[in-house]
Design a protein around this nucleic acid. Structure first.
Lengths: 115, 115
DNA sequence: TTTCAATATGTTTTAAAATGAATACTGTTG
DNA sequence: CAACAGTATTCATTTTAAAACATATTGAAA
């Protein structure tokens, strides 16, 4: 073998729905942070993302999923909050399962890449 | 089965090098248009992309590949031009081969996606 | 030796996205 | 029934990236 710069394959995947991109790793992270913190506000802070943006992403997910992924609680103790629904939990699992299979496959394709 | 919105998996892949993203479908298209038109200028027009941007992408590719993917001809008849090197041709083939295998695999994973 | 079209490069404009600030709303709990 | 903290929403500001503009430079060929 001559020179050997290292090249490797990277893969990004997301779920597409009729209206376009529906669920990618960014929204998955948001879901996980909502689960962890119990609110959109704190999830957004955790991710250093604007609340406005986080809220919009949640709206979009909920509207375009067959059933909402996030349940939002308005008012009440602590002002409210947000938690994942069963569908939300399943979405996370499903996404990571598929992602793992695809990334593993992609890794196997990383052999003698030369440019 | 209950309701059935259609969800499908989309995949984007690119080649990563030590300094970061090296070669994705955008640069591949650029290479193909350079081959087709014989110059960066016309390739850029074809793609409705700014010449400056196209030129920069070519620079980057050439510098970070082990050997240049595009040969640039300066001055002379017609002002010069640009053509693919052997390495450039191989890069296109290799990219599409890997892309096809990964996308085919990803398609097979698109089964009972439900959200 | 002038012409020409493409490469090469810096500067300026424009457009798009993300962020930040401000404000109303909600409903449980003390 | 007032306080509280998070949701909901609008508007102004900032940041960022892309595009547009401008201008050298190059070298074969007429």
């Amino acid at each position: 073998m001559t020179s050997d710069k290292k090249y490797k394959i990277e893969v990004r995947l997301w779920i597409e729905e009729t209206e376009g991109p529906f669920l990618g790793i960014g929204k998955i992270w948001l879901l996980e942070n909502i689960r962890k913190t119990g609110s959109i506000t704190n999830a957004a802070k955790e991710m250093k993302m604007a609340y406005r943006q986080a809220w919009q992403l949640v709206q979009e997910m909920n509207q375009r999923a067959e059933s909402p992924l996030v349940e939002k609680l308005l008012g009440g103790k602590g002002g409210g909050g947000a938690k994942l629904t069963e569908a939300g939990e399943r979405a996370i699992s499903l996404f990571y399962e598929v992602e793992k299979r695809i990334k593993d496959f992609a890794q196997k394709e990383t052999q003698n890449l030369k440019f």
